[in-house]
């Protein structure tokens, strides 16, 4: 690791700490840093602010960090695997699958029955939505993986995923067109994306899932590096390419699906974060990129969350809109700065 890379990583750790504390301090009402620290350290103190920090802001921030790191890592994996700068965790139609699941639950006439079933069995509405998103994403992912295992060319797999996504989105549009206005509101709410819905209880599932996904990526940096030169070269250097491809697609897609299920479709973090890290570090070496992307993804998601909460006001911006508005210019800037404009796949 060069000195520049070490310095950049240290810088990112510092940035993450600052943004993390900021996300606890800022909100509809600001809580002083002193009180935040006291609440974090468990000092018995002023009741309300400690409760707000511990039960609302802390799980929200932890969720944001896990989601940001997951999306960044998944984006990095997909960009390397497909050697395409526009690949992201949802390139294989994952988010479309999740939306289909949610749309079926929220929009279809069966929702009333499902809700009744849910309340009878003690599953709350948002948990049902999460389950639906996971099932939808898993179905699409399974279909893409089965078909793609017969395909040699990675670009074909990518196009296949896009086509799957379009087809599934079309079905969702049909459902949206046929549904009643009050259900559309709930559907739109999910589409906005949010880190706030994940409570401590749901973090018990969300945390380990994303953690292990990121761990897989961290454990396969060597394989990802070998893939930098393309699959032919990777194979010639001893990589079991098909297995590596399957593992990478699987872990990236599961990360994307889990985040989408719990937080809604969050766009652009997955594309933008790896680009920013490559730009900062001037390297494609995954041994450095993976930790950088984890740090930068967490910080980016926290920052987007802070912005979306419009500190000091009662209003809230859709998280998805914030990440898009932040991410799109970043991707454009990175692509314009790079010499060739677009990396040739």
């Amino acid at each position: 690791m060069t000195k520049r890379e070490a310095m950049t990583l240290v810088g990112l750790v510092t940035l993450l700490c600052v943004v993390f504390l900021l996300s606890l301090v800022l909100g509809s009402t600001a809580i002083s840093l002193h009180r935040v620290l006291m609440a974090l350290l468990g000092t018995p103190s002023d009741g309300t602010s400690a409760i707000v920090v511990r039960t609302i802001r802390l799980p929200r921030s932890v969720t944001a960090m896990l989601a940001g790191a997951s999306l960044g890592i998944a984006g990095l994996q997909m960009q390397t695997l497909f050697r395409n700068p526009l690949a992201d965790p949802f390139a294989l139609g994952i988010s479309s699958g999740a939306s289909l699941g949610v749309a079926l639950v929220v929009l279809s006439s069966g929702y009333g029955a499902a809700a009744a079933f849910g309340s009878a069995t003690g599953i709350r509405g948002d948990a049902l939505i999460t389950a639906a998103a996971i099932v939808g994403a898993a179905l699409v992912l399974g279909l893409v993986l089965i078909v793609s295992s017969r395909i040699v060319n990675p670009t074909t797999v990518l196009i296949l995923g896009l086509m799957f996504g379009y087809a599934v989105s079309a079905v969702v549009t049909v459902l949206v067109g046929a549904s009643q206005p009050e259900r559309l509101a709930q559907w739109a709410q999910w589409g906005f994306g949010s880190f706030s819905g994940v409570t401590w209880q749901r973090l018990q599932l969300f945390g380990p899932l994303t953690f292990f996904g990121v761990l897989i990526a961290a454990a396969t940096t060597k394989q990802l590096n070998a893939l930098l030169l393309g699959e032919s070269y990777a194979r010639s250097m001893g990589l079991a390419v098909r297995r590596a491809r399957l593992l990478t697609m699987l872990s990236a897609s599961v990360l994307g699906a889990v985040v989408t299920a719990f937080c809604g479709p969050i766009s652009f973090l997955g594309i933008a974060v790896p680009h920013v890290c490559r730009g900062l570090l001037s390297t494609s070496d995954h041994r450095v990129l993976v930790p950088a992307v984890v740090l930068m993804g967490s910080a980016g998601a926290l920052f987007a969350e802070i912005v979306s909460l419009l500190p000091g006001s009662a209003g809230v911006l859709p998280l998805n809109a914030v990440t898009s508005l932040m991410g799109a210019p970043v991707v454009v800037a990175v692509l314009l700065r790079s010499r060739r404009g677009v990396v040739v796949g």
Binding site: L228, G230, S236, S284, V343, V344
Partner: peptide, 14 residues
């Protein structure tokens, strides 16, 4: 066995 192919390698920043 080491292999070098015709294809141009496109890798950014390495």
């Amino acid at each position: 066995l080491g292999v070098v192919l015709t294809e141009r390698v496109a890798v950014e920043a390495l």
